[in-house]
Nucleic acid binder design. Structure first.
Lengths: 342, 342
DNA sequence: CTGTTAGCGCCTTCAA
DNA sequence: TTGAAGGCGCTAACAG
């Protein structure tokens, strides 16, 4: 369906008796155009209801003014709020955003890369799928010099910029919080160890344990795919063992919730709070468990920062393509946190 | 940042000793090109690693192959799953998607309209903000013949296609479910009455009440903005009255949760289940309240259907621009639904 | 400071 | 069934 013709810069030019290039330059705020002309052009553009045709401009400049985003799933709050941050910043700078979901599967992540590449995006922001263990597909971008920024779940193999939250500190705070409550036997359910994210949370936990001279029991540290099923399995294993932990620090929200659910279902009391990283933004968290202590990280901030970094690279404001930005985390202790999680 | 030059149809043409137009037609599967030539062109395209330049094509055809989406907030599960459905269908058909969030505010909704219009989208899918009470800003699209499809929260003033779920039946099922549990005094917290969605749920409720000869008490029907604060206020009003209801049917998830939270906090027993519409997809619902009965509606299906409809209109497969599609709902009764909601 | 000219890559008449 | 030519709207040299 073809649309009716629109006003172009030439219509403005004709109306003003000047040339198209002058109009173009005026509209782009080129320094070589007099202020008087600029004003005249802008006024005329407004009265004629001119809408710039990005398509033509993009074709000419071979920039799409579009960035691509690859995330595991948009339905997770952390990622949807990251999208909000990305969209907001990008739109303000005149960029559009294409979103692709990997569903946490490497295969689909590859498809996303192809899709975005074919769309000729000017740059890409990505958070890798849980089971992505090699990053060759991303070379489609790096080979063609398309800027790439990772966030949250980052890739160290590729030389790109990254935006992460302070997972080490998050792990540390979570563990120390439990220790301060008097817990000695603190289990940690960690995530896939090829992701820095989970390595760092684990290291933070270990540091807190060591700092307070608490013996670390390797049986209390479990590597999990962090899904619901495995969360329930971990809960069963830990809570029904002959020597159950005082507290559990789960490395993500799904796992923490699975544990709470399991415990509730079986009528098992968890003596202290569960700590969980990366969950406090979840809008239902206080419904879920008013006593759950969480580590706050803002998806919005992460998305915003990643976009800022990416656009800087795209616009060549910075030559440095390997910056790593670490955003702060904060422990959120809910009221009545001595109650049984419910 | 300009990118290095790419392979064009002329490179293919040169390699094959034919003209650019033939290549273009072959690639677009034009019927006037012999199968042999088509195959040769496709093969050569593959060997040369040709990537079509959508920009140029779009400029020429003045179609952007992009659709715009306006939703209240992406972080709500219903909408993020709708987005997933929209993206999936659109991408498969070669369309890109631009997402704009209104934050449930009419002002921002207007901005979204402008943004999408400036992006020259080929069509728009929208679910209106809660406080949108007039639809003039949407005329930006209809005036220019840009196809528009509403979903879930639809607008009746404008002559457009719509995709909704069967809210009437949802309301009916919810109320009848509570009646079947022996409840007589069933409160209903309804939403803004300028939205069909909530009118229909209310009507369904009323029909069920009448069918079972249950007296309708107007004090038990409350119109609410359906946010958390008002949910708590409604809970207080209903549950602490001298004659509290047997059960409450809340018209959305947030309100139902607020009520559960309030009741739990105050130690008030709600004699029967709470019914809630439009919530069963929420991934945490079973954590929140294993005994909550919900009305299932699939955001994914709604998004998919809306996109299908929109693309049909864009591609002129159908002249009918006022179709209304009603998708089915289903009541989901959780196990142990006689327990106190917790 | 402004105008002229020549494309960006593709599609689409028109002619063969 | 194919080719030639022109132009979508804009920008970026190159000239003034």
């Amino acid at each position: 369906m073809k649309k009716e013709s629109n006003i172009t810069i030439h219509d403005i030019a004709k109306a003003l008796g000047i040339s198209g290039s002058t109009v173009s330059r005026a509209l782009n705020n080129n320094s070589r155009i007099s202020d008087k002309t600029k004003k005249a052009v802008r006024d005329m553009a407004k009265t004629l209801g001119y809408q710039p045709n990005a398509l033509a401009s993009n074709l000419r400049t071979s920039c799409t003014n579009t960035i691509g985003v690859i995330i595991p799933r948009i339905s997770r709050y952390f990622f949807s709020s990251a999208i909000t941050g990305i969209e907001e910043f990008a739109r303000e700078k005149g960029f559009n955003v294409i979103i692709c979901q990997s569903n946490d599967q490497k295969e689909r992540e590859s498809d996303c890369v192809q899709t975005l590449f074919a769309s000729r995006v000017d740059g890409v922001i990505s958070s890798v799928a849980l089971n992505t263990d090699n990053y060759d597909h991303y070379k489609t971008f790096t080979n063609k010099n398309i800027p790439l920024v990772f966030f949250d779940r980052v890739c160290d193999e590729l030389e790109t910029s990254k935006v992460v939250v302070d997972d080490f500190k998050g792990g540390f705070l979570a563990a120390e919080h439990l220790i301060s409550k008097g817990c000695k036997r603190i289990a940690h359910i960690s995530g896939p160890q090829h992701l820095n994210l989970y390595i760092n949370r684990l290291q933070g936990y270990l540091k807190a344990m060591r700092k307070h001279n608490i013996q670390i029991d390797k049986d209390q540290i479990i590597e999990s795919p962090l899904n619901r099923e495995d969360g329930l399995a971990c809960a069963k294993k830990l809570l029904e063992s002959s020597n159950p932990p005082d507290a559990i620090f789960a490395a993500n929200d799904t796992t923490a919730l699975s544990i709470i659910l399991y415990a509730k279902d079986k009528g098992i009391r968890i003596p202290q709070d569960l700590a969980v990283v990366g969950f406090s933004n979840e809008p239902f968290s206080e419904y879920l468990s008013p006593s759950l202590t969480t580590i706050e990280q803002s998806g919005f901030d992460v998305g915003l920062k990643a976009t800022e970094l990416l656009l800087d690279i795209i616009q060549n404001k910075t030559g440095n393509r390997q910056e790593t930005i670490v955003l702060p985390v904060r422990l959120i202790e809910r009221e009545s946190s001595n109650k049984l999680p419910n």
